[in-house]
């Protein structure tokens, strides 16, 4: 009997490990391929130069790196307040029909194909403005980010034990301060994870940018103009017939991955658990 249980336990453990390895294989393959192909095309010019005209070799994707940052930045400016405040609403006051419908619609929104959000941003921003712009791209990315941020904020705030809320209220701390400075603060680690997931997803999106931010082979001068982005460049260069463009697409993918990685590490460091609040 004992042996039977032991065998079962070992078998299940082995199954778990095997599943983890299986899940890691594609990740490692992608990482290895991007590193080995992208690294060779990476040089200082890549970070400082504009793309060269067709036929000329060299150049870089400096405008696309900055463009991705700006697009994601605009997306964050729009989606962080909306997403976090909606999450707070759902977790603290959303136990009613309205809350349930918002929750349901948020889940539906997160399942909408990203190209559709591009169409929405096209209709909402591009058509009234009559041209493609960084704003339109930012709006498209924000629509993609909001559901993730809302739902993780809600879920994370719900994991904070009720006893902390009671402790704070019993100290004569007002309800909104309790929500922001105790509940949200306690769940900050989880909320940040959600925000990082949303940023990573938005930064890697191509489809919603195709007819909102479009693309730009030069430096943008204002935000109501088309703007370059790494993903659109990767897409355009990746399907091109030129070897050096394809190499630059790999380098762009590598840079994009590293940017997300660095941002993740930096944000985690800034919001790490600590007890010194002064």
């Amino acid at each position: 009997m004992f042996r039977y249980r032991k065998i079962k336990s070992t078998a299940l453990y082995a199954l778990c490990v095997a599943s983890v390895l299986l899940a890691l294989i594609p990740l490692l393959l992608i990482f290895y391929r991007t590193l080995s192909f992208g690294f060779t095309a990476l040089n200082l010019d890549f970070f400082t130069q504009l793309p060269k005209p067709v036929g000329e070799s060299g150049g870089g994707l400096a405008n696309a790196i900055v463009g991705t940052m700006i697009l994601v930045g605009i997306g964050c400016c729009l989606s962080l307040p909306v997403g976090i405040l909606s999450g707070i609403y759902l977790s603290e006051y959303g136990q009613n029909v309205f809350g349930t419908s918002v929750r349901f619609l948020t889940d539906v929104l997160s399942g909408v194909p990203s190209i559709v959000t591009g169409v929405v941003a096209y209709t909402l921003v591009v058509i009234p403005m009559k041209h493609f712009s960084a704003y339109a791209g930012g709006v498209a990315l924000a629509i993609l980010m909001i559901p993730t941020i809302t739902r993780t904020t809600e879920e994370m705030m719900k994991t904070v034990p009720h006893s902390y809320r009671e402790a704070a209220l019993a100290l004569g701390i007002s309800e909104w301060k309790t929500t922001l400075r105790i509940i949200l603060r306690t769940s900050l680690g989880g909320v940040v994870t959600g925000v990082m997931l949303a940023i990573a997803r938005a930064a890697g999106e191509t489809a919603p940018l195709l007819f909102t931010a479009l693309n730009n082979r030069f430096w943008h001068t204002t935000l109501d103009q088309p703007i370059a982005s790494l993903t659109v460049f990767i897409y355009n260069y990746g399907v091109s017939p030129f070897d050096d463009w394809i190499a630059q697409a790999w380098a762009g993918a590598l840079v994009l991955m590293l940017m997300i990685l660095l941002l993740s590490i930096a944000v985690r460091f800034a919001t790490r658990k600590r007890y010194h609040e002064h």
Partner: peptide, 28 residues
Amino acid sequence: VQVRRRIGMVFQKPNPFPTMSIADNVSA
């Protein structure tokens, strides 16, 4: 809120705020 500042409460299970130091818990 005023009532609760004049009538403090201690709960069954200890519940210090996990994100705060000892000093910050007291001064919260």
